[in-house]
Design a protein around this nucleic acid. Structure first.
Lengths: 123, 123
DNA sequence: ATTATTGTATTAGACACTTAATACAACAAT
DNA sequence: ATTGTTGTATTAAGTGTCTAATACAATAAT
């Protein structure tokens, strides 16, 4: 798994986001075993403590399940993950729209900017 | 000016964002005088120190200009503000598109979600 | 010239985040 | 039964953010 930790925001929050993304997109499918805390921490370049904090938060949200020496697994079902993915997409769209409104960008221009962003991706 | 400071992210960064938004959208037009640090701080419910930090950062970016007892003014020109507004909109679109891609949401569905967000705004 | 306003700087303390280093607890594997 | 793996907890220290209180510096207004 690839990690992208940037300064300026709490690391454990970034870990949570990226882990959740990996889960809802199927990179870590339902039922799959999650690598050990120490391994994930080494990968991400953080302390086991910090990674532990992120994992526990995801466990609180019902996405992961720790079983002592048997390691962690993705406890959420496929349906639940799909719902989460949808919710996340809706929230992103909502937020994006809100910000464009705040900037005073029209509906048409917003659409145009999105098309431009899509084109730009083809690099 | 209305402030919306939420915990979890550095306050001075939120101040910078909201001040910059007010500037590029014309709420604080080019050449306008900016209220004193102490006043802005009281409005936003933060310490003058924190507000000062945000204002100085905006000064570093060339948006504001401090003139001792004459107070601060918006030093950026209208054209510059327009450019900034455009850049910000483009960056937002780019980022939104990137995140939808990461979530595996199709182009059509992205458009649909955006329409839904636009409708929802009519409350 | 004096005064009030405004920007700026300094010091101290509280708090959250993060690292580092260990140690402990549970249990699968052998 | 022993061993190794894994999750969990603890303590200490460093760093950045934020508040609080205060003082200083420059200058517009009078």
């Amino acid at each position: 798994m690839e990690w992208n930790i940037t300064p300026g925001r709490p690391v454990y929050l970034q870990l949570i986001e990226q882990l959740e993304l990996a889960i809802v997109t199927g990179a870590m499918p339902a039922g799959a075993r999650v690598p050990p805390v120490r391994e994930l921490a080494a990968e991400a370049g953080v302390t086991p403590n910090t990674m532990q904090r992120a994992l526990q938060e995801l466990e609180n949200r019902g996405l992961l399940k720790a079983q002592r020496t048997a390691g962690r697994t993705v406890s959420a079902g496929t349906e639940q993950l799909d719902t989460l993915r949808r919710q996340r997409a809706e929230a992103l769209a909502q937020e994006f729209w809100k910000q464009m409104q705040a900037l005073g960008v029209s509906t048409e221009e917003t659409a145009a900017l999105l098309r431009a962003a899509a084109e730009k991706e083809n690099v």
